[in-house]
Nucleic acid binder design. Structure first.
Ligand SMILES: [Zn+2]
Ligand SMILES: [Zn+2]
Ligand SMILES: [Zn+2]
Ligand SMILES: [Zn+2]
Lengths: 165, 165
DNA sequence: GCCTTTTGTGTTATTATATAACATGTCGAT
DNA sequence: ATCGACATGTTATATAATAACACAAAAGGC
C-alpha cells in the first residue's frame, strides 16, 4: 500500500526520469561486475522495483512484487536480494521504516543520510560525508573507532510544507 | 542474555555508580512530575532495569524481568513503559538494535547520538546537539524541515580496541 | 568437454518484534 | 459517591527477519 498523498503526480526527483533509472541500472551492473558480484535477474529486478518505488519499500512489499512475477514467494527471496544490494552499495536500509530504498548515487562510495517525510513518506538521500566527518571526530574524542553510521532525519519535505494542509 | 565480553568488571561509565543511578532516578521523578506525568511503579522499575543494564535491552528482555517481579507478562506491558520513558526523555530507542537504553542526561532536553560497540555491545550516549545543527542546515538546504533525527554509529569502543583481540 | 566447488535460488518452519482491541482497576476532581 | 481520564493487564494478531535444508546454475581446474 503506497501512501495516498504520494499518488498525485509528485515523485522524488531522484527517481522520476526513466532515463536516470536506466542510467542507474547501468551503473549498478558495472559496479557489481567490478566488485566481482553477479547482478542476477532477481537482484536486478529487485533494484528496479526499488527504483520505481516512491518511498522506501518493506521487504514484504518487494517480495509481493517478485512473487507476482514468478520469482520465489518466500521472505528469504526478498531479504537475500535486498541484502545483496545493500552490501554492494546499490541500496540502503532505512531502519526507522524497516524498509529499503535504492541508492541515488551508486557510482561512488559514500555515507548517506536520509530525510524522511512524515506526511508523504518520501525518503530522500542526502550526502553525509561532511556530517560523518564531524561524527567521526566526536566519536574519536570519546575514544570510539567509528566504522559506519546510520543517520535518519524525520520531518517534512518541501512539497508537503508548501501544500495547504 | 548479556554479551559475555561485558561481564568482567567493565561497565559503562554512565551507569556504573549506584550513586549516579539513584541521582538519575531522582531526576527522572522530578522531570516526570514537572511534565505532569506519573512515574508509576512499572515505569520506574523499567527505568531502573535499563539503568542497571550494560548494553541496551530489547523490549522482551525488559518484559522478562518485569514479569519475574510480578508485573504483567505480556508485550504491551513492556512496550508501554518503554514508550513512556522515551516520550518523556528518560530513555532512548536504539533502532539498529531494536532496543532501548536509559538516557544518560535526563535533566535537560537534548539530541543524542549513540556509539554502538560491535564487540561488546555497549551503547554510549553522546551529545549530538552540534551534529544536529549541522544536519539541520544540510536539511534546510534541501528544503526539508527537520523534526528529529536518529544518529547511530557502529564501531569499536575504547575498551575493545585496547583489548588484545 | 567433465567433474568439483562455489554461489545462488527456492522451499518449509520458526523466531523475533510490535501493535490492536478490549476488560478491569486506580485516582483525582467534582 | 460518581465521573472521566489514565493506567494496567489480558488475548489475539500483525509485521519483520532468520534458520535450515534441497536443489540448480555458474565458475574453475583438468
Ligand atoms: Zn546512496
Ligand atoms: Zn512530503
Ligand atoms: Zn539522552
Ligand atoms: Zn566494546
Amino acid at each position: 500500500m503506497t501512501s495516498p498523498t504520494h499518488q498525485d503526480g509528485f515523485c522524488c526527483a531522484a527517481h522520476s526520469g526513466s532515463d536516470s533509472m536506466a542510467a542507474i541500472l547501468e551503473t549498478a551492473e558495472t559496479r557489481a561486475r567490478v566488485q566481482g558480484a553477479r547482478l542476477t535477474p532477481v537482484r536486478r529486478r529487485t533494484l528496479e522495483i526499488l527504483l520505481q518505488a516512491h518511498g522506501a519499500l518493506g521487504a514484504y512489499e518487494v517480495l509481493e512484487k517478485l512473487a507476482a512475477e514468478g520469482y520465489g514467494t518466500q521472505p528469504p527471496v526478498a531479504y537475500r536480494a535486498l541484502n545483496f544490494l545493500v552490501e554492494h552499495g546499490l541500496a540502503h536500509r532505512i531502519r526507522r521504516l524497516n524498509a529499503f530504498t535504492a541508492c541515488a548515487q551508486p557510482d561512488h562510495d559514500h555515507r548517506a543520510a536520509f530525510l524522511i517525510c512524515e506526511t508523504c513518506n518520501s525518503v530522500t538521500e542526502a550526502d553525509a560525508d561532511l556530517l560523518c566527518r564531524a561524527l567521526d571526530q566526536a566519536a574519536q574524542a570519546a575514544g570510539f573507532q567509528l566504522d559506519r553510521a546510520t543517520i535518519e532525519a524525520v520531518g517534512q519535505c518541501r512539497a508537503c510544507q508548501d501544500a495547504p494542509e
